[in-house]
């Protein structure tokens, strides 16, 4: 069993970070993981993405041309990665920023107002965690409990954010579990 997800959006939206959370959680569960960032001059503002592979066996290519899942936080990312997804692939769309859908009908799409939810819950910078929650709700690449632990560990030095970040993550997770897509 191997899950592969591309997480993509504008630089600064925190895609690298949720990718790392997923990778840490995979490691915590004793799985094989790779985290591969796009890197380059687009550290701020441009599009940035990372690919996370979590598997039971040693991972071949850390670079995935047609992933099984994509988490997209801006429209250019949707346009770039939706066409590359495998059949029956998972597509988590940040509907706060992306008005359109993919025209593919062979995907499992889920729309979620990540920015709005994060703002309502009190930390507008944690829209990325809403997205991660929704992805884990769609496909338990790792358990949501392990992600919660990873959040606690990552924000060890900023404990004031732990509670709200766990809450935003869980909000995304539960909406996806319940299949409440923002259509």
């Amino acid at each position: 069993m191997q899950t592969e997800v591309i997480m993509s959006g504008f630089g600064g939206q925190g895609l690298m970070m949720i990718g790392k959370l997923l990778a840490y959680a995979g490691l915590e569960e004793g799985k094989e993981v790779t985290w591969l960032p796009s890197y380059g001059p687009e550290m701020r503002g441009g599009t940035a993405n990372c690919t996370v592979v979590v598997g039971d066996r040693p991972i071949g290519s850390p670079l995935i041309s047609s992933p099984k899942a994509a988490v997209v936080m801006n429209q250019p990312s949707l346009e770039k990665f939706a066409p590359t997804l495998k059949k029956n692939g998972i597509l988590v769309i940040n509907s706060s920023m992306i008005p359109i859908n993919s025209d593919r009908d062979d995907l499992r799409s889920f729309r979620i107002k990540a920015n709005d939810i994060a703002a309502e819950l009190g930390n507008r910078r944690s829209a990325n965690l809403v997205m991660l929650g929704a992805y884990i709700g769609m496909e338990e690449a790792v358990t949501h409990e392990t992600i919660l632990k990873a959040i606690e560990k990552t924000f060890e030095k900023k404990p004031q954010f732990v509670e709200v970040n766990c809450k935003t993550f869980m909000e995304g997770y539960e909406l996806a579990k319940a299949g409440k897509s923002d259509d």
């Binding site: 490691l27 094989e32 993981v33 790779t34 985290w35 591969l36 960032p37 890197y39 850390p62």
Partner: peptide, 10 residues
């Protein structure tokens, strides 16, 4: 290559 440098793995 650049991937080895930038990639995270356990």
């Amino acid at each position: 290559d650049g991937m080895i440098g930038q990639m995270m793995e356990p």
